[in-house]
Amino acid sequence: MSAATTLPPAEVTKRRARGGRLSALVTRVWLIPVVVAAWEIGTRQAASAYFPPPSQIVARAYELWFSGPAAHLFLTDDALGDFLPSLARLFGGWAVACVLGIGLGVALGRSRALAGYIDPLVEFGRAIPPPALVPLFIVIFKLGTEMQVATIVYGVIWPILINSIDGARYVDRLHMDTAEVFGMGRAQRLFRIILPAAGPKIFAGLRLSVALAVILMVLSELVGSTDGIGYQLSYTQMNFDLAGMWSVIVLLGVLGLVLNASFLAVERRVLSWHRRARQTT
């Protein structure tokens, strides 16, 4: 006699749904524990100094960052000293690039003449690989936060700019005509028509830029910094602390994953109209 037969039908379906979700989750992520286990066994067997087993990496990460006092959310001073400056640069640079990129992009997208003058410069600017500007920024800004933020802004702005131009340029003619006929002012057109219409494109650019921002944050900190996650990376390397180094790598993977997931969550909310409209047609 199974307990389910005595349950009310609603409860049964709920349980089934939960079971279904659980099994769906299992079919999706089963490979991860398998890979981690295989990695653990393999590295223990090989006993290479360069490839510490995952358990050791986790222990080192805990020791480095998460064994702090409860008042600091268990974060150690090292963690606070490394994460906060890095994240501040990351988000600061990204925010500046967003404002500049979207603002300039919409202006260029809406004005054919302006775009005509600026287009070749944009094409050239985005063709320069951003790290190539690091040596210049080092000379101009010296080593430090300014140089790092400049690197992030320069590297991240292009996908935002290009996509904003594209999105603003191809707003449906009839949308603009409707706005004109009903006498909408400039600000209203910008915020209620152009930006929403260009939204899907702009978000595509923003998503690309998040990944780039992490790369450039690490790069700029590796090149010259006295704090931050990238600094931690070069510090562990110099001290031949391989478990520590792997911890930083894993941490950066998690950071990228979390950033991407939160970004997608925001995008889903903001652009839900777009997703659902596309499903219906």
Partner: peptide, 16 residues
């Protein structure tokens, strides 16, 4: 697995 490995910036692998 791909979702986890992809965001690791390859620049971060350079020291290793």
């Amino acid at each position: 697995l791909v979702e986890f490995l992809r965001p690791i910036p390859s620049v971060a692998l350079l020291p290793l």
